[in-house]
Amino acid sequence: MATEFREEHELHKRRFGRNMGLLAVLIAFVAIVFGLTIVKVSEGGKMEAFDHATRPSLLVPEDGQ
């Protein structure tokens, strides 16, 4: 029967705790990467990196230019 639920077991509580723990870790990781990005960019970090194609904005200007 589709409406029949299995009784709640201590095991399910433990698994729920584990899932919540993982959720908290993932949220914290996202927050850290976001925070780090804000700091790096506001400290003048490069906005773009080498991506297998020439990017004039990444070149070091030569003398007299």
């Binding site: 009784e7 077991h9 201590e10 095991l11 433990r14 698994r15 705790g17 584990r18 919540m20 723990g21 993982l22």
Partner: peptide
């Protein structure tokens, strides 16, 4: 219910703290 819990109790399933 006590006899079924006993089955799970020996190596009980890990909680989050066990991974920590």
């Amino acid at each position: 219910m006590t006899d079924t819990t006993a089955v799970f109790e020996q190596p009980r399933e890990a909680g989050f703290g066990d991974y920590v």
